[in-house]
Design a protein around this nucleic acid. Structure first.
Length: 673
RNA sequence: GCUGCUGUAGCUCAGUGGUAGAGCGCGUCCUUGGUAAGGACGAGGUCAUGGGUUCAAAUCCCAUCAGCAGCUCCA
């Protein structure tokens, strides 16, 4: 008698010996077909495994739908990959080899570095290993034995990991497949037969345990699927994603340029890109005005004293452009025979006079606040500026519009009383909500950064912190969207709310941010006169709903795949003449459209209509207005929509009205796919 | 900053130790065509920069700069 207990708690009894497959069949033919392997008392077994008779066993039948099935298979594939690498390159040290979104990796250290040229050989070896069809066998070892096993294998990283990361574990598990033995928590698939299709993707450096001061390993990225078709579809998806990369589209659509001669991470906005940026600024400005913000302008540099007071210099020196040293100060130093090394030391200690390219706008705004006597009646004071800041980002981090060295924040600083904090935070959140709403961006996450209660690194009164954190939570709730609360993620000066989106290849970027600050008002000694006629310290809110114009537009290009909504499109429409004969009418339509406030251009080249349409389509022009003799006669344009294609002929006035409505409504139209 | 890869015409990319090619784009001409590429001819390159090896380097080596992927970082 075989007794099987299924995950739902039900029991099944069989008179004779049955395999996992037989049990699946008894439940349903569909399950039998979809079954990949079984798990008996948590241990993976093959479908033809014969279930022991007697005592009831817990059986789970794993199908593709099981959320862990793919990850388990990929992890087993990682073992196969590591085994293949060890066969090809002797003396390989293994580190970690986990599963990640879309695949897996294994960190290794080789005497002689691996390159992508080694991929075919590794893949071939993997195929051989899979063909051997050896099972993954689990072994449990007490910790002292486990250390010895890893030492015998000369796997130093594994030894270290057992001694540090796994210091609490009394017993450790290994998985063995043929000659390959690896410290591993598991689980694994019963046999490599379930690895359907795999592919090595890329190779990159990675630090052991993510620590920059430790060994740098080689990380082999790869992926695997149950079927070749799924792998192909995945690879195609990756290719598609690359096409919407804002760096590719930015070049193709002529939105921005980054020039070697100007400098790394310094964006030159072309007329088209500038247009989009300006439109976005105008858009948010309307809402700032409505919310009672005051627009200000401040210079791009400030004296070092300003940043010494704010605490940014010399503390954050590494991420700033080198200061512009005061001319007289420099010549004085020169007279005193100061060497370069001494100058650098002075700079490190902050003992230097000069100016700094501003890494943030707050100190300037703070000095504006402090420039007048303030009463509680004046508060809240909301100073906004599209302020350009410069930060010396690490060279390896810079790329496209999403990480740059000079960028413009849609910045503002609110000086508020404790009582006003909550309401003002809600106002800030509303702006973010308006922006994401207008762009049709749903796919973002919200993080509320709270202080770590055990830490003493935070400035400000703990009671105020509690109030501010609560205010942040409540403000975040007004989004009507889930948010995470992250203790320890607050800045040392106050809690914050961050808005994060992913780019086309899955990298996460912070866009909007709202931060409470108890620190700077203190450092600058800011005050207002309260109703009690006594001085009080205001609280500051830093906020930037876009984050930075550069990063936001970078993400926006990918979000729209280059097809901006009509109100944002630099070129909203294009007049296409069927032949030269219609040029005069085309020009008339063009000026009619312009007078109606529509941004149009005319394509009067002696090309065939099909070619002009193709060009317009590739340039993602929202509307093409085709004009030929028929239209000239009837006073119409034949509209071709970027999304829906030919819409037929309508009178010019009607077309203008249609566009005006779409612009005024800021409609986001997307391909319904 | 670190590791690996890459750098050839405006763009996308071929290419060999013996001093450069395609497609697109651009210019001129022909074509006058109603919803995704009409044709011909032509112009355009210190093969990223600086060294080195060699009779000979765009090709091999080194350095620098820049780009890409990842790691680390991001007040």
């Amino acid at each position: 008698m075989t007794i099987v207990k299924l995950p739902d708690g039900s029991l099944k009894e069989f008179d004779s010996t049955v395999s996992v497959k037989d049990v699946a069949k008894s439940i349903g033919s569909r399950l039998a077909k979809d079954a990949l392997w079984g798990e008996i008392d948590m241990q993976p077994v093959e479908l033809d495994y014969e279930i022991p008779q007697g005592e009831p066993v817990n059986l789970k039948i794993i199908t593709k739908k099981d959320p862990n099935a793919l990850a388990t298979m990929r992890h087993s594939c990682a073992h196969v990959m590591a085994r293949a690498v060890m066969r090809i390159k002797p003396g390989v040290q293994l580190a970690f080899g986990p599963t990640i979104d879309g695949g897996f990796y294994y960190d290794v250290e080789c005497d002689e570095p691996l390159t992508e040229e080694d991929f075919p050989a590794i893949e071939k070896e993997m195929a051989k290993i899979i063909a051997l069809d050896e099972p993954f066998e689990r072994l449990e070892r007490p910790r002292s034995d486990a250390i010895q096993v890893c030492k015998d294998l000369s796997q130093d990283f594994k030894v270290e990991h057992i001694e540090t990361g796994l210091a609490e574990d009394d017993s450790l598990s290994f998985y063995q497949q043929g000659e390959f033995l690896d410290l591993c928590r598991g689980p694994h698939i019963p046999s490599p037969r379930r690895i359907g299709a795999f592919k090595l993707l890329s190779i990159a450096g990675a630090y052991w345990k993510g620590d920059q001061s430790r060994e740098q390993l080689q990380r082999l990225y790869a992926t695997a699927f149950f079927t070749q078709a799924e792998l192909d579809a995945h690879l195609e998806l990756l290719e598609e994603a690359k096409k919407r990369d804002h760096r590719v589209l930015g070049k193709r659509l002529g939105l921005f340029h980054i020039d070697e001669m100007v400098g790394q991470g310094l964006v030159l906005w072309t007329p088209k890109g500038s247009f989009v940026r300006q439109k976005l600024q105008d858009f948010i400005s309307e809402h700032l005005q409505r919310q009672g913000y005051d627009q200000v302008f401040t210079p791009h540099i400030g004296k070092l004293d300003l940043y010494k007071t704010s605490g940014h210099f010399p503390y954050y020196q590494d991420s700033q452009y080198t200061p512009l040293v005061d001319r007289e100060y420099l010549s004085q130093l020169a007279e005193e025979g100061c060497t370069c090394g001494e100058l650098a030391n002075l700079m490190n200690e902050g003992e230097i006079e000069g100016y700094l390219l501003k890494p943030m706008n707050c100190p300037h705004h703070i000095r504006l606040f402090a420039s007048e006597q303030r009463s509680y009646r004046d508060l809240p004071i909301r100073l906004s500026e599209f302020g350009t800041v410069y930060r010396w980002e690490q060279s390896g981090e810079i790329g496209g519009l999403t990480r740059v060295r000079g960028f413009t924040q849609d910045d503002a600083h609110l000086f508020v009383t404790q009582e006003q904090l909550g309401e003002e935070l809600i106002g800030c959140i509303e702006l973010v909500k308006i922006i994401f709403g207008a762009m049709g961006m749903e796919d973002y996450t919200v993080r509320v950064g709270l202080r770590d209660p055990d830490s003493s690194k935070y400035v400000g009164d703990p009671e105020n912190w509690d109030l501010a954190e609560q205010a942040c939570r409540e403000a975040a709730q007004t989004l009507g969207k889930e948010f995470s609360e992250d203790p320890g993620e607050a800045a040392f000066y106050g809690p914050k709310i961050d808005f994060v989106v992913k780019d086309c290849i899955g990298r996460k970027w912070q866009l909007g941010t709202v931060q409470v600050d108890y620190n700077l008002p203190e450092r600058f000694g800011l005050e207002y006169v309260g109703s009690d006629n006594k001085p009080h310290r205001p609280i500051m809110i830093h906020r930037a709903p876009f984050g930075s114009m550069e990063r936001f537009i970078g993400v926006l290009i990918e979000h729209f795949a280059g097809s901006f909504p009509l109100w944002l499109a630099p070129e909203q429409g294009r007049i296409l003449t069927v032949s030269d004969k219609s040029e005069e009418y085309g020009k008339r339509v063009e000026s009619q459209m312009r007078n109606g406030g529509i941004r149009v251009k005319g394509d009067y080249r002696s090309e065939k209509l099909g070619a002009k349409i193709r060009d317009g389509q590739l340039e993602m022009i929202p509307y093409m207005m085709i004009v030929g003799p028929r239209d000239a006669e009837n006073g119409t344009v034949s509209i071709r929509d970027r999304i829906d294609g030919d819409l037929g002929a309508i009178p010019v006035e009607e077309a203008i009205a249609k566009f005006q409505t779409e612009i005024a409504d800021k409609t986001v139209r997307r391909k319904s796919s």
